[in-house]
Design a binder for these strands. Sequence first.
DNA 1: ACTTTTTCCGAAATCGGTTTAGTGAGAGCG
DNA 2: CGCTCTCACTAAACCGATTTCGGAAAAAGT
Lengths: 338, 338
Amino acid sequence: MAVTIKDVSAKCGLSISTVSKAFNNYSDISAETRELVHRTAREIGYYPNAIARTLKTNRSYNLGVLYSDDGQNGLTHSFFAQVLDAFKSECEKHGYDLTFINHNVGWTGMTYLEHCRYRNVDGVCLVCADFYSTEVAELATSDIPCVTIDHAFNNRSCVMSDNLQGVQQLVRHAVSNGHRKIAFVHGQRSSVTENRITGYYRALNEAGIDPRADYLVDALYDSPTAGYTAMNQLMKLADPPTCVLMPDDHSALGALEAAGDLHLRVPEDVSIAGYDGNRLGQMLHPRLTTVKQDTKRMGVQAALYLIERIENPRTAVSEVGMVPIKLIPGESMGKVKK
Amino acid sequence: MAVTIKDVSAKCGLSISTVSKAFNNYSDISAETRELVHRTAREIGYYPNAIARTLKTNRSYNLGVLYSDDGQNGLTHSFFAQVLDAFKSECEKHGYDLTFINHNVGWTGMTYLEHCRYRNVDGVCLVCADFYSTEVAELATSDIPCVTIDHAFNNRSCVMSDNLQGVQQLVRHAVSNGHRKIAFVHGQRSSVTENRITGYYRALNEAGIDPRADYLVDALYDSPTAGYTAMNQLMKLADPPTCVLMPDDHSALGALEAAGDLHLRVPEDVSIAGYDGNRLGQMLHPRLTTVKQDTKRMGVQAALYLIERIENPRTAVSEVGMVPIKLIPGESMGKVKK
DNA sequence: ACTTTTTCCGAAATCGGTTTAGTGAGAGCG
DNA sequence: CGCTCTCACTAAACCGATTTCGGAAAAAGT
């Protein structure tokens, strides 16, 4: 069925070795022979089989992508989907394919690491995973080249969105609009969340505002309903905040809904901000004040780090790339009423 | 580094063949031996290498996924992302991994089909692709098992969302609310679009309404700006429609925006419907009337068709699965003013 | 003319498995 | 006891490439 190197060698009247060498640009092949080989290969539609090549060279030109199985937020989550999309394009540009890594391939209970070895991936990108699980840590700290998104492992490359700056700028923006009672609703425990909380405290401190425990609310990412609940809770405080920062744009939608149900106008009665800069937030009225993460740059950067590691294992160093964010002011954040 | 079959055979004092057979449940291996092999394999952490196995058996347990490179709507598009997510889960359940197929791996200008052969995928799922391109057609009609989403190729399995019913039900819903002037804004040419237009005409016919050419507007999928433009155009007609069906929820957002800018209230002055049933549509006020596609079922069904084809090539027949949709009424569609 | 070097190519081992064909030991049988 | 049959296992070919090592022929040097 498929055309193999043998067909080329037969058609050229050359040995298999010679054909292989011609394809891999060995120096001990004459220009004419090389040309002949390439020509006939094109004629009969030959291209080396990746499987056979991988077996011998131990280089698959295939990268693993860890995209949390469990968790409801898989491919559906727009932030991760965008990062992955950019990562994918950049990898393809360099000749690498992408295969999903998971830990329940059929019957066998392979770990992530085992799955990577099983498929001989050259490297792996942890896009969206439970970074606190031992299995993920095992993979990240293995000898397989690895890059992570938004969570740093010791001595491994990582691309981070500047979450600290993101929240800090949001708070500054709020303060510049006269807000002093600023609440922060955050998502699940993660390094992203930690950085954002730090940014929150830092900006409050900078503005000389004392943080209040009841203004820091534990909620979920990407959950309008959790956002609704959190907003409700905040607004029912004896001394409610005048500005609420939500974990993301979807959650902010829930908050807007809650405000509506409480007959609070946004931004006249209360200001709300999201995070992510989804298109939808810009279609709302009021337009959502939010922070745009540079997902494209994150994905591309991750690909470059990983490929560098793979292709220059000796000289490549692990890097932590901090990708800047951009504050997007919208009408959902208003000046505070006197 | 990696532990191979040799290590197991050495540790057991058995030949390589025996170990392999024990793993593949050959009948000419005694129960004790089989047990011994599995036990030691577990001890030293052995699992057969997929690459080596593939080379010999020509079965990779790897499926290709075609997810349009070009087109801006890649992984980002929520409908496709959801289908892919379900497809992925189901495949993993059956022991298959997923690799993205594209046509610009590095320098080489491989076609989709060549890429599939290059990676030895057992089958391929065309999720989101330009079905009218010759390259895609070449792949779909090749000897590689194939399943498509929302576009049927002769004698190939396919999973379709019932788009005809979807639009038909929307129109019926509009009619039942007293609308007679119903416009349909549709996305790019595709089999999905064709079916929807047919559903539109059919429902109009059913209600005894004469279709009007100026009520059928050519726009784009997933484009709020195109939606905005289309809505604007419709509302400026001498005799504007009272109800507008948009290509999808995102486009509907654009239409809502346009209505707002024209100081038209929804649904009092004009009714608007979306398509897809995104979460966001349900968070809007007014809640968007829309059609929910069963993306999960589509993905799972596609996986089952494909795997059936792969594992029972002789008996499997090509099937076209029609997945039902669900109308989701919302406040964006109101009773027509007298 | 003879040695040395360079150029170009091929034989064969190898990667880690699967599978076919065969083999030796013991059981069953007359 | 000798024969055949099973049973349980192994040797070896093979999948499609890459790569090391070596060798023949041509070119260069003396």
